[in-house]
Amino acid sequence: MQGFSTRAIHAGQEPDPITGAVTTSIHTSSTYAQDGVGGTRGGYEYSRSANPTRTTLQECLAALEDGRHARAFGSGMGATDTLLRVLLKPGDHIVIPHDAYGGTFRLIDKVLSGWGVEHTPVDLSDVEALRAAIRPETKVVWTETPTNPLLGIADIAALAGVARDAGASLVVDNTFASPYLQTPLALGADVVVHSTTKYVGGHSDVVGGAIVTNDDDLAAALSFAQNSTGSVPGPFDAWLTLRGVKTLAVRMERHCDNAERVAEMLAGHPAVEKVLYPGLPDHPGHEVAAKQMRRFGGMVSFQTAGGRDAALQVCSNTQLFTLAESLGGIESLIEHPGQMTHASTAGSMLEVPDNLVRLSVGIEDAEDLIEDLRAALDTLG
């Protein structure tokens, strides 16, 4: 198999056979001429059903995740919703992480619950806890690793074994790791989900999602559901994501370099109560992460010693770290999950600590990022 960067640049992206163009074209056409009734050219008839630019992106994403099939969506939540509606029906049960992304929790708790789907939050770093939560109605085990925003680590291979024994599908949200750092299908997962808005796109200029699987029947069901609901990315969004993914490997190396140095600085600062980063040896998931990840990622969370007010003050006082939601772009971002990305978990079992700060460490000069954070923390006195 070719190396990761080679696949990122070339998979599905051969030069145009007519013009020789080395960059994928943006196919803006909404419809396609047919050679007689039902006689499509290459399977294209209407761009909700299929679009050549989207096809190229899907082929590339499948190659990067070592999968046979990928489907690109208009957003990560669009991908998540479509997948869960294919895998679940009223009366089914899903296990989710006890620290899941707020948007995923909101979809399951507020939308799918009205459809008759039940869920149980579980600390998925504990395989026995998962085993105890499994019911006869359990059809999906949904995990994130690392989790958003507490950076928890789950053993994908171990979870896959439990899910398989229960006749359930293991879905891994691989957004934080990206396919460069982790390939869940190779570890036994049935499905991988991404918000391609994040590291895959990498430039904070496109919203998208993706599902990757080796299951032929599931891929066909996803295509039918996607075409039926219309949760598709536009051709320019697909092209932007393709442009971003070409540099994923080099970006992730820099994200990891910077995150490691930021985490080390935070661990030694008196205003920081706790640093959550799987690259630190004292992180409870460090050994599992080292086993299943290439490196430890660009996301760092920490808890301030001064409580909620101190966390809010740090978020307001940085200069290079921009106060904003989302993550995975080349620029560094800072946020307060309790009032921003994870507000939907307030009052639930998934509520995050109010002194928690989440960082998406970008690819700027590490020394500048460290000084920016140190200066913001020093203001806490």
Rank of each mutant, 00 (worst) to 15 (best):
T56D: 01
L57H: 03
C60T: 15
C60E: 03
A62H: 09
R68W: 01
R68V: 05
A72S: 15
A72G: 05
F73W: 08
F73Q: 02
G74R: 03
G74Y: 00
S75K: 08
A79H: 03
A79M: 09
T80H: 11
L83Y: 13
L83V: 14
L84N: 06
L87Q: 12
L88V: 13
D92N: 11
H93E: 06
P97W: 07
H98F: 11
A100M: 07
Y101L: 06
G102R: 05
G103F: 02
G103W: 06
F105W: 15
F105M: 05
L107C: 03
I108C: 04
D109Y: 04
K110C: 07
K110M: 05
V111L: 10
L112C: 11
L112I: 10
S113C: 12
S113Q: 12
T120Q: 13
T120E: 12
D126E: 11
D126I: 03
E128G: 06
R131W: 00
R131Q: 14
R131G: 15
A133S: 08
I134P: 02
K139Y: 11
V140G: 01
E144V: 09
T145F: 01
P146R: 04
P146Y: 05
T147Y: 06
T147G: 03
P149F: 05
L150F: 06
L151C: 10
I153V: 14
D155Y: 05
D155I: 01
A157I: 03
A158V: 08
L159T: 10
R164V: 02
D165Y: 08
D165T: 14
D165C: 13
A168D: 03
